Simulated scan of single mutants.
Amino acid sequence: MTTEYSAQTLLLEGADAAAFAQAQFSSNVQSLAVGTWQFGAWLDAQGRVLALFHLARLADDAFLVLLRGGDAAPMAQSLQRFVFRSKVKVTVPGPRPLGRGPAVETYAVHREGDAYVIGCGDHSLIVGAASSNDAWRLPQIRMGWPWLPDDVLGKLLPQSLSLERLQAVAFDKGCYPGQEIVARLHYRGGLKRHMHCVVLSQHATGGTVLHQRGENGIQLLDVVDADATVSALAVIDDGLMNAIENASNIVTNEGVSLNVLDSWPA
């Protein structure tokens, strides 16, 4: 089953673009060099992830935001409320074809004509590709790079999505929305949900919640059918993982079995 993925992007431009992004997003934007990208997130006041994205620095005063789920226009509208007198312009270029390109060093970004090439190691993401394709989805699931269905936006904490591992959350910079909550979890612990790479026994839609023993223990993120298997990223309650004798093979109430291939800490 193929899902069409378009590139939902924002542009932040202006003398205060870096300072604005540093104050709003969870990553350390000031450390980002021109021609590179980093994972970033925009959180609500409770620390929940409203948006996850690639943040690419195109110039000293220009950033490209490629969303990993969600729509760019509402996010731009919400960000605009925080501009005040800052010299930053937030624009939405509109959806563009998103496809897989050749190998490019991870965290490198460059422009080819009207397209942006975002390096992901053994492949790249092309924003403005000649045509859309989803050949990038399976390798990114296996790398633990989540793509967020609409159903989970504003519901999960960064640690549940392994965003610390992806360096999408910084604790050594100034305040940003939700910073107090995620810092407390980082230093004191207490989070009881983590992300896993799984193979499903049958197709399920991204965003589906599966149950085991009557509990809402499994939140599916991106799901892809490829290589005769159904692969997915899933956020699973630690209690469920600990309670199952064979945690590598979980049978849900819905009749969907999950074989856990890899697990990541916060």
Score class of each variant (00 low, 15 high):
residue 212 Q to I: 13
residue 224 V to H: 08
residue 234 A to H: 10
residue 237 D to K: 13
residue 215 E to H: 08
residue 228 A to K: 08
residue 229 T to I: 15
residue 221 L to Y: 02
residue 211 H to D: 05
residue 220 L to Q: 10
residue 227 D to E: 15
residue 205 T to A: 11
residue 225 D to I: 00
residue 242 N to P: 07
residue 228 A to R: 08
residue 226 A to Y: 02
residue 220 L to K: 04
residue 230 V to F: 11
residue 235 V to Y: 02
residue 231 S to V: 06
residue 208 T to A: 14
residue 211 H to T: 15
residue 210 L to W: 02
residue 206 G to T: 01
residue 229 T to W: 10
residue 232 A to N: 01
residue 215 E to T: 12
residue 239 G to S: 10
residue 217 G to K: 07
residue 242 N to K: 15
residue 217 G to H: 03
residue 211 H to M: 02
residue 213 R to I: 00
residue 231 S to G: 05
residue 215 E to D: 14
residue 209 V to L: 09
residue 237 D to S: 13
residue 226 A to I: 10
residue 227 D to M: 10
residue 222 D to I: 01
residue 229 T to V: 15
residue 220 L to G: 07
residue 239 G to T: 06
residue 216 N to I: 02
residue 224 V to C: 11
residue 225 D to Q: 05
residue 214 G to C: 04
residue 243 A to I: 03
residue 234 A to D: 06
residue 215 E to L: 02
residue 219 Q to W: 04
residue 219 Q to F: 01
residue 231 S to T: 15
residue 214 G to L: 12
residue 204 A to G: 06
residue 206 G to C: 05
residue 237 D to Q: 14
residue 216 N to V: 00
residue 235 V to H: 05
residue 237 D to R: 12
residue 238 D to V: 03
residue 230 V to G: 03
residue 209 V to E: 06
residue 209 V to G: 01
residue 216 N to L: 11
residue 218 I to N: 08
residue 230 V to I: 13
residue 239 G to P: 08
residue 234 A to F: 12
residue 241 M to N: 09
residue 222 D to Y: 00
residue 222 D to F: 02
residue 216 N to T: 08
residue 213 R to T: 03
residue 223 V to N: 02
residue 226 A to W: 03
residue 215 E to N: 02
residue 213 R to L: 11
residue 205 T to C: 01
residue 230 V to D: 03
residue 211 H to L: 12
residue 212 Q to N: 06
residue 207 G to P: 12
residue 207 G to M: 04
residue 219 Q to G: 01
residue 216 N to Y: 01
residue 212 Q to F: 03
residue 214 G to E: 11
residue 224 V to A: 10
residue 219 Q to H: 03
residue 242 N to V: 05
residue 242 N to S: 15
residue 213 R to H: 10
residue 243 A to T: 05
residue 241 M to T: 11
residue 233 L to W: 04
residue 225 D to Y: 00
residue 209 V to K: 07
residue 224 V to I: 15
residue 217 G to I: 06
residue 225 D to L: 00
residue 217 G to M: 09
residue 225 D to W: 03
residue 225 D to P: 02
residue 212 Q to T: 08
residue 231 S to P: 07
residue 218 I to M: 11
residue 221 L to C: 10
residue 225 D to V: 13
residue 229 T to K: 13
residue 209 V to D: 01
residue 209 V to H: 02
residue 241 M to P: 00
residue 213 R to A: 11
residue 216 N to G: 00
residue 208 T to E: 11
residue 234 A to L: 14
residue 225 D to E: 15
residue 238 D to F: 05
residue 218 I to V: 13
residue 240 L to V: 01
residue 210 L to F: 07
residue 213 R to M: 08
